[in-house]
Write a protein that binds this DNA or RNA. Structure first.
Lengths: 231, 231
DNA sequence: TAGATTGTTAATCGATTAACAATC
DNA sequence: TAGATTGTTAATCGATTAACAATC
């Protein structure tokens, strides 16, 4: 049942749940295209190696309702997750920094399917300005604030070099942008009302490289032990 | 003090700690280049909006030691985190899929500084094979397993379209690769000893788009209230 | 020395897991 | 109906925060 906080949209969803929702979503989309109509938490839990009760709680956050003995309609789940994550409405976004990473993001097809449409790119380099990257026009950086305001853009993506990131962020704030997805390795200073998400690709590398380093270490030690103890 | 599990490398570090370490790292590198020699957890906590005790516990995982009343040597911290995350040794990696995202990753300078060196790219497209992308040679996909084994490559990066991802993963496993960083929206089936890290860029979008959606909703509701109650 | 800071142990908080009644 | 599954409440587990002794 919905409580007072819920109805005001003030419930804070647990971070781990928020991170799992896209995983459910992808899984459910696969089920959907395989023609599956209903699914139970037990099955989801098995397939994704998660506790079924956890799955149920996670999904409950989206407001979806299931039928005892039956399960959930796959289509309901997909729709509810989309709504919950705001993927049903398209967010128009501006991207600043048309370098390698910026270009890749401009051509990343999954974004469109998940409510993100990058409508224009901005760069300071005159050689890039005016060109098209993946069908998106590259415009002069100085025009960002004016255009953002005129077009009511809410979301900005920063893929410029670190030294330029703060200035770009200032431009975005000035243009009325409310949320920034920052790929530059810089802590941006913005008004507290602006949502910033830092996304350093190498951050994700931490878990993988730590695990790999540990794994290799263990193997080396095992090797040494085996050699020493001749067992 | 190090316990038995630690010494065998079996302690599992909390996920949240692992996610915060790169943040400390970047912060500390900045301090370092600003010429700062020592730092206290109190200061770190203030600057990064984290509880100082948490900072202390996180850092303790790396085995670093501080001096009461003084703090930690910045250079110690940087080095210990690098060691802990395996960023002090370069991991040579193969990348499969020389498309937009693959090319961007090939040119991402931060990787090198964090222990990741992509030494070659692989693709099936004959038009790409033989060319150089950011100085890295693109080779035929079929040669991946043999080369990986010959060169002792441990890490593979998958940036191919979803339909090809499983086959590429099989190639990598066949070539003796032990950890896979998978950018394709597919759950890979690999032997349990292989470490897989799934990295869908749009996953990260979830938190941001949810927050933005909620924010806009709240604002709309506020607007309505204001209008209705003429307050 | 006095006070700031580390390292560590205890208390709290929140997320995960278990238990179970409701129900199709 | 019987049994599987949902929704929810209680128990457990682990991470965060608080408290405090040791120490430079």
């Amino acid at each position: 049942m919905e409580n007072a906080a819920d109805s005001k949209g003030l419930t804070t969803i647990p971070e781990p749940t928020l991170r799992r929702l896209p995983i459910y979503y992808q899984y459910l989309r696969n089920l959907e295209s395989a023609g599956k109509k209903v699914i139970s938490c037990t099955t989801i839990g098995n397939d994704l190696s998660l506790d079924p009760t956890q799955v149920r709680k996670d999904l409950a956050h989206t407001g979806v309702e299931g039928k005892p003995k039956v399960g959930y309609m796959v289509s309901d789940l997909v729709r509810k997750i989309e709504e919950f994550l705001g993927w049903n409405k398209i967010n128009a976004a501006f991207l600043a920094g048309a370098g390698n990473l910026g270009s890749a993001l401009l051509g990343y097809p999954q974004f469109r399917e998940h409510g993100l449409s990058i409508v224009a790119a901005f760069d300071r380099d005159p050689a890039k300005v005016g060109s098209l990257i993946h069908g998106k026009r590259v415009l002069p950086l100085e025009t960002l604030p004016g255009l953002a305001r005129r077009m009511g853009i809410r979301l900005g993506i920063i893929t410029v070099p670190p030294a330029a990131a703060q200035e770009v962020a200032d431009f975005m704030v000035q243009g009325g942008i409310q949320a920034i997805w920052n790929f530059a390795p810089v802590m941006l200073k913005v008004p507290s009302s602006i949502v910033v998400r830092n996304e350093e690709l190498y951050y994700s590398l931490a878990a993988l490289s730590h695990t790999l380093a540990k794994k290799l270490n263990v193997e080396i030690k095992k090797g040494e032990e085996g050699y020493a103890s001749s067992n």
